[in-house]
């Protein structure tokens, strides 16, 4: 029985941070939506919105997928992935705005 509580304890502790993360995700989504609604555009606003998106995806990877608690290459798999579309999108938007 004592081993079982050992397993349960960290899982219970997972709920609260995930709820907080969920709240952060919702708030950032609303911010992104408001920026769109306000019709804001341009390179820096776009990159800010992209930054929010990458951060949100990172939160999902770390907390919801649970990669935070993993060792080695799999810990960084989402980060590495996000770097690919993140940098390419940045590059493309810099092209279209910088001319």
């Amino acid at each position: 029985m004592s081993t079982k509580t050992n397993i349960i304890q960290p899982n219970r502790q997972l709920i609260r941070p995930c709820t907080v993360v969920y709240g952060v995700l919702v708030v950032l989504t609303l911010v992104t939506w408001s920026i769109g609604r306000a019709g804001l555009g341009g390179l820096w606003v776009s990159l800010l919105v992209l930054g929010f998106a990458l951060f949100k995806a990172q939160l999902v990877g770390d907390w919801f997928m649970g990669l935070r608690d993993i060792r080695g290459i799999w810990r960084w798999v989402v980060v590495i992935w996000l770097a690919v579309p993140g940098s390419l999108i940045t590059l493309a938007f810099a092209f279209s705005h910088g001319g």
Binding site: V49, A53, F64, M65
Partner: peptide, 23 residues
């Protein structure tokens, strides 16, 4: 199943701002 679903969610988190908001 959870990992796959989070991936579907995560991809949308990029797709939404990219297609609907960034300009």
């Amino acid at each position: 199943g959870a990992s796959y679903w989070h991936m579907v969610d995560m991809v949308w988190l990029i797709l939404f701002p990219l297609v609907y908001v960034m300009r």
